[in-house]
Design a protein around this nucleic acid. Structure first.
Lengths: 114, 114
DNA sequence: TGCTATAGGCACCTGGAAGTAACAATTGTA
DNA sequence: TACAATTGTTACTTCCAGGTGCCTATAGCA
Protein backbone atom coordinates (compact mmCIF):
# COMPACT_ATOMS: atom_id res chain seq x y z
CA UNK A 1 0.00 0.00 0.00
CA UNK A 2 1.62 3.20 -1.17
CA UNK A 3 1.56 6.38 0.86
CA UNK A 4 1.22 9.80 -0.70
CA UNK A 5 1.74 13.18 0.89
CA UNK A 6 -0.09 14.87 -1.94
CA UNK A 7 -2.37 13.30 -4.56
CA UNK A 8 -0.24 14.31 -7.52
CA UNK A 9 2.31 11.75 -6.36
CA UNK A 10 -0.12 9.06 -7.46
CA UNK A 11 -0.05 10.47 -10.97
CA UNK A 12 3.74 10.58 -10.96
CA UNK A 13 3.79 6.93 -9.95
CA UNK A 14 1.92 6.07 -13.15
CA UNK A 15 3.49 8.43 -15.67
CA UNK A 16 6.79 9.23 -13.97
CA UNK A 17 10.19 8.28 -15.27
CA UNK A 18 12.10 9.01 -18.41
CA UNK A 19 9.85 7.42 -21.03
CA UNK A 20 6.22 6.98 -20.05
CA UNK A 21 4.97 10.45 -20.91
CA UNK A 22 6.65 10.23 -24.30
CA UNK A 23 5.13 6.81 -24.99
CA UNK A 24 1.68 8.02 -24.00
CA UNK A 25 1.99 11.11 -26.19
CA UNK A 26 2.70 8.89 -29.17
CA UNK A 27 -0.24 6.65 -28.31
CA UNK A 28 -2.54 9.65 -28.12
CA UNK A 29 -1.83 10.34 -31.77
CA UNK A 30 -2.33 6.76 -32.85
CA UNK A 31 -2.14 3.18 -31.81
CA UNK A 32 1.38 1.95 -32.45
CA UNK A 33 3.31 -1.22 -33.08
CA UNK A 34 6.36 -1.94 -30.96
CA UNK A 35 8.71 -1.25 -33.86
CA UNK A 36 6.96 2.03 -34.58
CA UNK A 37 7.47 3.18 -31.03
CA UNK A 38 11.11 2.23 -31.24
CA UNK A 39 11.46 4.29 -34.38
CA UNK A 40 9.66 7.23 -32.83
CA UNK A 41 11.91 7.06 -29.78
CA UNK A 42 15.42 6.49 -31.12
CA UNK A 43 16.93 6.75 -27.67
CA UNK A 44 14.98 3.95 -26.01
CA UNK A 45 16.23 0.39 -25.79
CA UNK A 46 14.10 -2.68 -26.44
CA UNK A 47 14.30 -3.60 -22.80
CA UNK A 48 13.15 -0.23 -21.51
CA UNK A 49 10.38 -0.01 -24.06
CA UNK A 50 9.01 -3.41 -23.10
CA UNK A 51 9.37 -2.67 -19.42
CA UNK A 52 7.62 0.69 -19.58
CA UNK A 53 4.83 -0.73 -21.74
CA UNK A 54 4.30 -3.55 -19.25
CA UNK A 55 4.04 -1.10 -16.38
CA UNK A 56 1.64 1.18 -18.23
CA UNK A 57 -0.41 -1.88 -19.07
CA UNK A 58 -0.55 -3.11 -15.50
CA UNK A 59 -1.60 0.38 -14.42
CA UNK A 60 -4.49 0.07 -16.84
CA UNK A 61 -3.71 3.03 -19.07
CA UNK A 62 -2.67 1.15 -22.20
CA UNK A 63 -3.73 -2.12 -23.74
CA UNK A 64 -1.66 -4.69 -25.59
CA UNK A 65 -3.12 -6.30 -28.70
CA UNK A 66 -1.39 -9.40 -30.04
CA UNK A 67 -1.98 -10.65 -33.58
CA UNK A 68 -1.18 -14.32 -34.05
CA UNK A 69 1.10 -14.14 -37.03
CA UNK A 70 4.71 -14.54 -37.94
CA UNK A 71 6.72 -12.43 -37.60
CA UNK A 72 4.83 -11.29 -34.52
CA UNK A 73 2.68 -8.20 -34.57
CA UNK A 74 1.76 -6.38 -31.38
CA UNK A 75 -0.06 -3.09 -31.09
CA UNK A 76 -0.47 -0.81 -28.15
CA UNK A 77 -3.25 1.69 -27.61
CA UNK A 78 -4.70 3.74 -24.80
CA UNK A 79 -7.45 2.20 -22.74
CA UNK A 80 -10.56 4.13 -21.89
CA UNK A 81 -8.92 4.92 -18.59
CA UNK A 82 -5.76 5.95 -20.37
CA UNK A 83 -7.71 8.55 -22.30
CA UNK A 84 -8.48 10.31 -19.04
CA UNK A 85 -4.83 11.36 -19.12
CA UNK A 86 -5.23 13.12 -22.44
CA UNK A 87 -5.98 16.52 -20.96
CA UNK A 88 -2.87 16.60 -18.80
CA UNK A 89 -0.65 15.15 -21.51
CA UNK A 90 -1.90 17.58 -24.13
CA UNK A 91 -1.17 20.54 -21.91
CA UNK A 92 2.27 19.17 -21.16
CA UNK A 93 2.99 18.76 -24.86
CA UNK A 94 1.74 22.24 -25.64
CA UNK A 95 3.85 23.71 -22.86
CA UNK A 96 6.88 21.86 -24.16
CA UNK A 97 6.33 23.31 -27.62
CA UNK A 98 6.04 26.88 -26.50
CA UNK A 99 8.92 26.41 -24.08
CA UNK A 100 11.14 25.39 -26.98
CA UNK A 101 10.00 28.36 -28.99
CA UNK A 102 10.68 30.69 -26.09
CA UNK A 103 14.05 29.19 -25.27
CA UNK A 104 15.34 28.49 -28.78
CA UNK A 105 13.78 30.98 -31.19
CA UNK A 106 14.79 28.91 -34.21
CA UNK A 107 13.53 25.62 -32.99
CA UNK A 108 14.76 23.64 -35.96
CA UNK A 109 18.04 23.44 -34.12
CA UNK A 110 16.66 21.40 -31.26
CA UNK A 111 13.85 19.39 -32.80
CA UNK A 112 15.19 16.25 -34.36
CA UNK A 113 12.35 14.72 -36.34
CA UNK A 114 9.64 17.27 -37.24
CA UNK B 1 22.13 22.58 -27.15
CA UNK B 2 19.64 19.87 -26.27
CA UNK B 3 17.99 17.69 -28.86
CA UNK B 4 14.39 16.58 -28.58
CA UNK B 5 12.60 13.95 -30.58
CA UNK B 6 9.25 15.30 -29.48
CA UNK B 7 8.45 18.65 -27.88
CA UNK B 8 7.11 17.18 -24.66
CA UNK B 9 10.65 16.18 -23.80
CA UNK B 10 11.40 19.87 -23.27
CA UNK B 11 8.69 19.99 -20.63
CA UNK B 12 10.06 16.90 -18.93
CA UNK B 13 13.48 18.51 -18.80
CA UNK B 14 11.99 21.32 -16.70
CA UNK B 15 9.54 19.47 -14.48
CA UNK B 16 10.94 15.94 -14.63
CA UNK B 17 12.42 14.09 -11.71
CA UNK B 18 11.12 12.99 -8.37
CA UNK B 19 10.34 16.33 -6.74
CA UNK B 20 9.76 19.22 -9.11
CA UNK B 21 6.10 18.60 -9.87
CA UNK B 22 5.38 18.29 -6.18
CA UNK B 23 7.21 21.50 -5.38
CA UNK B 24 5.38 23.36 -8.13
CA UNK B 25 2.01 22.06 -6.95
CA UNK B 26 2.69 23.46 -3.50
CA UNK B 27 3.76 26.80 -4.98
CA UNK B 28 0.56 26.98 -7.00
CA UNK B 29 -1.40 27.00 -3.78
CA UNK B 30 0.77 29.64 -2.13
CA UNK B 31 4.21 31.09 -1.95
CA UNK B 32 6.21 29.10 0.54
CA UNK B 33 9.21 29.42 2.79
CA UNK B 34 11.94 26.80 2.57
CA UNK B 35 10.96 25.32 5.92
CA UNK B 36 7.32 25.16 4.87
CA UNK B 37 8.24 23.18 1.79
CA UNK B 38 10.29 20.82 3.88
CA UNK B 39 7.34 20.28 6.17
CA UNK B 40 5.01 19.73 3.23
CA UNK B 41 7.41 17.18 1.72
CA UNK B 42 8.58 15.04 4.63
CA UNK B 43 10.55 12.79 2.31
CA UNK B 44 12.81 15.41 0.81
CA UNK B 45 16.21 16.30 2.17
CA UNK B 46 17.54 19.81 2.58
CA UNK B 47 20.04 19.19 -0.16
CA UNK B 48 17.54 17.91 -2.71
CA UNK B 49 15.11 20.69 -1.91
CA UNK B 50 17.73 23.38 -2.45
CA UNK B 51 18.99 21.70 -5.60
CA UNK B 52 15.56 21.34 -7.17
CA UNK B 53 14.63 24.91 -6.26
CA UNK B 54 17.83 26.19 -7.86
CA UNK B 55 17.09 24.32 -11.07
CA UNK B 56 13.50 25.51 -11.20
CA UNK B 57 14.78 29.02 -10.62
CA UNK B 58 17.36 28.85 -13.39
CA UNK B 59 14.65 27.53 -15.71
CA UNK B 60 12.70 30.65 -14.90
CA UNK B 61 9.59 29.04 -13.44
CA UNK B 62 10.05 30.04 -9.80
CA UNK B 63 11.56 33.06 -8.11
CA UNK B 64 13.53 33.29 -4.91
CA UNK B 65 12.81 36.15 -2.52
CA UNK B 66 15.33 36.78 0.23
CA UNK B 67 14.48 38.86 3.28
CA UNK B 68 17.50 40.38 4.99
CA UNK B 69 16.91 39.26 8.51
CA UNK B 70 18.25 36.82 11.02
CA UNK B 71 17.51 34.00 11.13
CA UNK B 72 17.21 34.07 7.33
CA UNK B 73 13.85 34.11 5.60
CA UNK B 74 13.51 32.98 2.02
CA UNK B 75 10.31 32.60 0.06
CA UNK B 76 9.70 30.90 -3.23
CA UNK B 77 6.89 31.67 -5.62
CA UNK B 78 6.00 30.99 -9.23
CA UNK B 79 7.15 33.48 -11.82
CA UNK B 80 4.79 34.73 -14.48
CA UNK B 81 6.30 32.11 -16.74
CA UNK B 82 5.88 29.48 -14.07
CA UNK B 83 2.15 30.18 -14.00
CA UNK B 84 1.93 29.00 -17.59
CA UNK B 85 2.45 25.53 -16.14
CA UNK B 86 -0.65 25.79 -13.97
CA UNK B 87 -2.97 24.19 -16.49
CA UNK B 88 -0.88 21.08 -16.91
CA UNK B 89 -0.10 20.79 -13.21
CA UNK B 90 -3.73 21.21 -12.20
CA UNK B 91 -4.82 18.44 -14.53
CA UNK B 92 -2.07 16.22 -13.25
CA UNK B 93 -3.15 16.83 -9.66
CA UNK B 94 -6.77 16.21 -10.49
CA UNK B 95 -5.89 12.98 -12.28
CA UNK B 96 -3.86 11.87 -9.30
CA UNK B 97 -6.80 12.48 -6.99
CA UNK B 98 -9.28 10.52 -9.03
CA UNK B 99 -6.69 7.79 -9.65
CA UNK B 100 -6.34 7.34 -5.91
CA UNK B 101 -10.11 7.21 -5.51
CA UNK B 102 -10.39 4.65 -8.27
CA UNK B 103 -7.53 2.51 -7.04
CA UNK B 104 -8.07 2.77 -3.29
CA UNK B 105 -11.77 3.33 -2.62
CA UNK B 106 -11.09 4.43 0.94
CA UNK B 107 -8.37 6.87 0.21
CA UNK B 108 -7.70 7.72 3.83
CA UNK B 109 -5.44 4.68 3.82
CA UNK B 110 -3.03 6.14 1.31
CA UNK B 111 -3.17 9.88 1.88
CA UNK B 112 -0.86 10.87 4.67
CA UNK B 113 -1.60 14.49 5.48
CA UNK B 114 -5.12 15.64 4.42
C1' DT C 1 21.84 -22.95 -45.47
C1' DG C 2 21.84 -18.73 -43.86
C1' DC C 3 19.66 -14.42 -43.55
C1' DT C 4 15.60 -11.35 -42.58
C1' DA C 5 11.96 -9.26 -39.65
C1' DT C 6 9.49 -9.03 -35.24
C1' DA C 7 8.83 -9.05 -30.28
C1' DG C 8 10.70 -10.14 -26.21
C1' DG C 9 13.39 -12.53 -22.15
C1' DC C 10 17.44 -12.56 -19.07
C1' DA C 11 21.86 -11.69 -16.61
C1' DC C 12 24.85 -8.40 -15.71
C1' DC C 13 26.73 -3.70 -15.20
C1' DT C 14 27.08 1.38 -14.73
C1' DG C 15 26.15 6.34 -14.16
C1' DG C 16 24.02 9.60 -12.00
C1' DA C 17 20.06 10.74 -9.12
C1' DA C 18 19.23 10.85 -4.62
C1' DG C 19 20.52 10.27 0.38
C1' DT C 20 23.64 11.10 4.66
C1' DA C 21 26.05 13.77 7.66
C1' DA C 22 28.74 17.38 9.00
C1' DC C 23 29.59 22.24 8.79
C1' DA C 24 28.83 27.58 8.16
C1' DA C 25 26.68 32.08 9.37
C1' DT C 26 24.02 35.17 12.20
C1' DT C 27 21.42 36.97 16.08
C1' DG C 28 18.58 36.45 20.10
C1' DT C 29 17.80 34.35 24.32
C1' DA C 30 17.70 31.26 28.38
C1' DT D 1 28.14 30.28 27.45
C1' DA D 2 25.65 27.42 25.02
C1' DC D 3 21.91 26.61 22.34
C1' DA D 4 17.98 27.56 18.95
C1' DA D 5 16.23 28.89 14.51
C1' DT D 6 16.82 29.23 9.43
C1' DT D 7 18.85 28.45 4.99
C1' DG D 8 22.38 26.70 2.70
C1' DT D 9 27.01 24.23 1.25
C1' DT D 10 30.11 20.40 0.82
C1' DA D 11 32.16 15.75 0.66
C1' DC D 12 31.08 11.28 0.70
C1' DT D 13 28.11 7.25 -0.15
C1' DT D 14 24.30 4.41 -1.76
C1' DC D 15 21.13 2.52 -4.83
C1' DC D 16 18.34 1.58 -8.66
C1' DA D 17 16.64 3.28 -13.21
C1' DG D 18 18.28 2.54 -17.18
C1' DG D 19 21.77 0.48 -20.59
C1' DT D 20 24.42 -3.52 -22.81
C1' DG D 21 24.79 -7.72 -24.77
C1' DC D 22 23.27 -12.05 -25.85
C1' DC D 23 19.66 -15.33 -26.28
C1' DT D 24 14.79 -17.31 -28.05
C1' DA D 25 10.96 -18.42 -31.53
C1' DT D 26 8.98 -18.56 -36.25
C1' DA D 27 8.27 -18.47 -41.27
C1' DG D 28 9.61 -16.86 -45.68
C1' DC D 29 13.02 -16.07 -49.01
C1' DA D 30 17.40 -15.77 -51.68
Amino acid sequence: MPKYNIPVEAALEVIGGKWKVVILCHLIENKRRTSELKRLMPGITQKMLTQQLRELESDGVIKRIVYNQVPPKVEYELTEYGWTLKGALDMLCAWGEQHIEKTYPNKEEVLLDS
